[in-house]
């Protein structure tokens, strides 16, 4: 069953606009805790984009890992460090306007190039299953798969070593 046929492209555009609004709220909200909550909704929206693009396994992984694990970490860090509820502390530095102008110029540079490029798209959306993904991980990508497990182990040990207190 095609989700596209069900909802139509117009609602898809509305969906993407909603994600952009949530992302803007994430980077501009003063309260960092609210920012983390907006980030969670942005990530759920991205997972829905994966479902629209027929990458169901990635959508599940996105919700489990990003919304589940990384958000918990971020909220823990905010609660352990930030002094919330003090509106007199500025949450952004003084380069807001120049950064905004530079990024707007970058967007005006990039978007026409994206429109002008003739992408060699195929007619139908190409899909894959979790089984094929697992086979690709175990055959073609087995070396990066093993390497990333070493990276994860190193990150685990490093995080514990850095974050534990000295006494």
């Amino acid at each position: 069953m095609d989700i596209f046929g069900l909802i139509g492209p117009a609602s898809f555009y509305g969906f993407m606009a909603g994600i952009l609004v949530l992302a803007v709220l994430t980077v501009t909200t003063r309260n960092l805790f609210h920012s983390a909550i907006f980030l969670a909704f942005t990530l759920i929206g991205v997972a829905c984009i994966y479902f629209f693009l027929r990458a169901e396994f990635l959508g599940g992984v996105q919700i489990l890992l990003y919304v589940g694990a990384i958000m918990t970490l971020v909220i823990f860090a905010i609660m352990l460090t930030a002094k919330m509820g003090d509106p007199s502390i500025p949450q952004s530095n003084r380069q807001r306007l120049p950064v905004f102008l530079a990024l707007a110029a970058l967007a005006f540079l990039l978007v026409p190039q994206i429109v002008k490029t003739s992408w060699k798209v195929v007619e139908s959306l190409k899909t894959t299953s979790a089984v094929e993904l697992g086979q690709a991980l175990m055959s073609e990508f087995v070396l990066p798969f093993e390497l990333i497990s070493i990276v994860l182990l190193a990150a685990l040990i490093g995080a514990i070593a850095i974050a534990r207190s000295d006494q």
Partner: peptide
């Protein structure tokens, strides 16, 4: 939008949130 957050946030956790975007 994420890059804007990275360049303008003062809080390190806020910068990390923008990097995730």
């Amino acid at each position: 939008i994420g890059l804007y957050g990275v360049l303008t946030r003062r809080n390190v956790v806020g910068i990390l949130i923008s990097i995730e975007i």
